[in-house]
Amino acid sequence: MNEFNELFIKYKDLITLAVYGTAIMLIIIGLYAVLLKKHLVKIVIGLSIIDAGVHLLFVAVGYIQTGTAPIFSPGYENAADKMVDPVPQALVLTAIVIGFAVTALALSLVIRLYKHHHTANIEQIKSLKW
C-alpha cells in the first residue's frame, strides 16, 4: 500500500478528477435519463445511476490520503490516526439497501401501470395528464 500512497501524492490531480469527475458524470447521465427518456423502465434505470453516483461521491468525500479502512483489527488497535472517515461509509451502507427497496417499489408501480394501460411509454399514458 506504500507504493500507492507515493503515487497518490504524485498524481493527486489525476485521481481527484477520476473519482469526483466519475461521480458527477454519473449523476448528470442519470439525470438526463430521468428527464428526457420516455420509457418508465429507462427512468428507473436513470434513478439507480444517480444513486450510484451519489454513493461514490459520499465515499470519496470521506476518503483520507494514506488512510485504511476504519476497522480496529488485532494489531491495529491504536491506528485511529491512519483511518478514513467512517461516517459517510455508514450513511452509504444503509442508503444502498434503502435504494434497493425504493427501486423495487418503483418497478412494481411500473408493472402495475403497464398492466393497466398496456404501455410503459409515459407519452401514451394520458389519463394522468392535465
Binding site: K12, I24, I27, L31, Y63, Q65, D85
Partner: peptide, 22 residues
C-alpha cells in the same frame, strides 16, 4: 443539467480529495 454539473464541479473543487477532515 449543464448548470447543475458546473455547480457540482465548483463545489467539489472546494473540497480537496483525500484531505484530513476528521
Amino acid at each position: 443539467i449543464a448548470v447543475l454539473g458546473w455547480t457540482l464541479a465548483q463545489t467539489f473543487r472546494a473540497i480537496p480529495f483525500g484531505a484530513d477532515r476528521r
